[in-house]
Simulated assay, not measured.
Amino acid sequence: MENDYLQEEVNYAFFSFPETKEYFAKVDYYLKNNVHIQKQTRPAGIFQYVRKAYPGLKEYYRDLFEFMLTCDGQGDFEYFFIDFEQDENGKYRRGNIPLLNRRYLKDAYLVIGFLMLNIYDLDGQVEERHTLDGFLRIIREQYENYHVNLVRLLTKNDSEFVTDADYNTITAIVRSALEEFYTLGWIYFDSESGEFELLPSSRRLFLLYEKEIRNIEEIIRKNHG
């Protein structure tokens, strides 16, 4: 019993940190809701707390919730997020996280994410301000030859023609995708002005889907509904 207590003290030393009372509940909420924690995360100080507590937090979530607290990036581009292990069939073990806390990106949102990173982040730079209207304009201009295919890919509409209603639908899908990315902590998004800023953790999508992001134009070109 005594040894078990000592082991707990070693693994979960962050419970004794003076900052734990201020930050741990928020960290726990963020991580269990798939939010990424990085320098830009609020409240100020939470990122440095996770950095300091990371070894113990990693053990805590592995032992009690069966998921991995993972760190990626370096310096000001470092970020923390929960990750899941794959079983022998390639399916992800979701650990002891309630279903209501699990987030699954819609296919259309993934496509928007691929477009966003292809356009703004293939050079690895982040933290530049962009706008929703500017993003939509670039999509229209850069994929002008694939309008019908892109509409089909995003709206699941098999029509041979692109209408104003289709563009309105795409605008709504892009806005919803940006709002979802904001919730996940991948970007900062001001829903009123339409301004958004890619954050370091947006690179996680690139790491997961580099091939698709680099070849998004080919994916759109080949899409036939």
Rank of each mutant, 00 (worst) to 15 (best):
E2T: 12
Y5E: 14
E9L: 15
N11V: 06
A13H: 13
F14E: 03
F15M: 09
F15K: 07
F17Q: 06
P18I: 06
P18S: 08
E19T: 00
K21F: 03
E22R: 09
Y23C: 00
A25G: 06
A25T: 03
V27G: 05
V27I: 12
D28N: 14
Y30I: 08
K32S: 10
K32I: 03
N33I: 00
N33L: 01
Q38V: 07
Q40G: 10
T41M: 08
R42P: 06
F47Q: 06
Q48Y: 13
Y49N: 05
V50T: 02
Y54M: 14
P55V: 08
G56C: 10
G56K: 13
G56D: 11
L57G: 12
L57T: 13
L57P: 13
Y60D: 14
Y61M: 09
R62C: 12
D63T: 06
L64D: 13
F65R: 14
F65L: 15
E66G: 09
M68W: 08
L69I: 01
D72W: 06
D76C: 07
F77N: 13
F81E: 09
I82S: 14
I82N: 08
D83A: 14
E88G: 10
E88Q: 10
G90N: 01
K91M: 12
Y92Q: 13
Y92H: 15
R94P: 04
L99A: 15
D107T: 15
Y109N: 11
L110A: 11
V111K: 11
V111Y: 11
F114S: 10
M116P: 02
L117P: 10
L122E: 02
D123K: 14
E128C: 06
T131N: 05
L132E: 09
F135V: 03
R137H: 04
R137V: 00
I138Q: 02
I138C: 02
R140T: 10
E141T: 04
Y143H: 05
E144V: 09
E144N: 14
Y146R: 04
Y146E: 04
Y146F: 10
H147N: 13
H147M: 11
V148F: 01
N149E: 14
L153R: 04
L154M: 03
K156E: 15
N157F: 02
S159M: 03
S159F: 03
E160Q: 14
E160H: 13
E160F: 11
V162H: 08
V162C: 10
V162N: 05
T163P: 04
A165H: 03
Y167R: 08
Y167F: 14
N168T: 02
T169C: 08
I173D: 00
I173T: 00
S176E: 08
L178E: 04
E179D: 12
E179S: 10
F181N: 01
T183A: 09
L184G: 05
G185A: 07
G185F: 09
D190T: 05
S191E: 09
S193A: 07
S193C: 07
E195M: 07
L198P: 00
L199I: 07
L199F: 13
S201D: 01
S201Y: 07
S201C: 05
S202T: 09
S202D: 01
R204D: 06
L205N: 10
L205P: 06
E210M: 02
K211Q: 09
E212Q: 11
E212D: 11
I213M: 02
R214A: 02
I220V: 15
R221D: 04
K222W: 02
K222G: 04
G225I: 07
